[in-house]
Design a protein around this nucleic acid. Sequence first.
DNA 1: TATCTAATTAGATGTATATCGAATTAGAGG
DNA 2: CCTCTAATTCGATATACATCTAATTAGATA
Lengths: 193, 193
Amino acid sequence: MQLDKLVNYHKAVGDPTRIRIISLLKKGPLHGQAIAYKLGLQPSTITHHISKLRDVGIIYQRRQGNIIYFYLDLERLEYSSKAILRIGDEGMKNQDNNLQNKDKLSIVKNFINSDGTLNIIPSQRKKKNVILAYLIRDLQHGKTYQEKELNEHIKKYHEDYATIRRELIMQHFMYRQNGEYELNPKEMWPVIF
Amino acid sequence: MQLDKLVNYHKAVGDPTRIRIISLLKKGPLHGQAIAYKLGLQPSTITHHISKLRDVGIIYQRRQGNIIYFYLDLERLEYSSKAILRIGDEGMKNQDNNLQNKDKLSIVKNFINSDGTLNIIPSQRKKKNVILAYLIRDLQHGKTYQEKELNEHIKKYHEDYATIRRELIMQHFMYRQNGEYELNPKEMWPVIF
DNA sequence: TATCTAATTAGATGTATATCGAATTAGAGG
DNA sequence: CCTCTAATTCGATATACATCTAATTAGATA
């Protein structure tokens, strides 16, 4: 299930009138006029709400003679309500703004010379972040680095270690405490390499 | 009332930005600036969304030095998301507009004379409906009544049978077809006696 | 076909809210 | 006490939407 479906379901249920309709229909099917009366609203308003609930699949209808009865689909309701708990488990991989791996690799190829050093620091934010992630790819999580130590590491790639060190902090790849540097958890990074 | 809690939870989750925040936080805590960056939004916007999610209890926060980390409360999320499935099972009894039995009885006592006739037709809608439900309490579902027959039935309670007969239709207790009258299913009634 | 009623659509209106930029607050650390 | 930055608040704006009334459609039945 993707983002829009999740949003639409929760938007649909996130209205007092529609929750009252759900509550009524849980006791059994009803037709539009009956719902309108019970809630003190106009039939057209009920149509409006019913169509929202039907759009997200938790209500279906069946005609009996001149009257259309509306039914609550409890299975669909259960499925939809629990979908938010499964978010991120599977699929939904492209909805954060991480880049595809091949895009990252081509950025690295463009900015890293054949001898492994950094040509220029990218000015575009996205590309800059990919390069920063690349530069620190073999630093260790949980380990603290002295400023000198970190400078030496960066200098292997580029002479302007001060700019790069500052960028690593500003882009939340690293955290500075008492002059010591440490990697932030990857969850904080704008890009993971 | 329970209704508002349900509405607020679904309203809170029913927004693409907030679902993306939930998705991010499911992988681990993040601070405001990181979220803002990842979603391409301003920090003030994140504050806005975080506070909505916190209001419904699915996010909490912990300060670490200068930075506040936001955590997703998965237990609360699970509890809240499933609440809609329990609607009507217990509690939430006052949210449809049915009255308590004792209230109905006291209304009947006020308007029905000691000889069993109706004193005056209530003008308040709720009371009027209770009385109407009382008057037809021994008519049979599925049976059709001729107009004369229905008039006679009503006259046992009150002389102004025309007004009451008209009200029975207007309030959806009964249905008229070709001059014949029939009870509507109880699900249509505004009040059941 | 003509008629009846439930349901829907269309248009209008008022309220809610997502977002931003600017100003302010809160707390950590010198 | 002073400074710095993350977080929040405030005011403005633009969009979304719940509800109504009036008009129209859909379907059953005579």
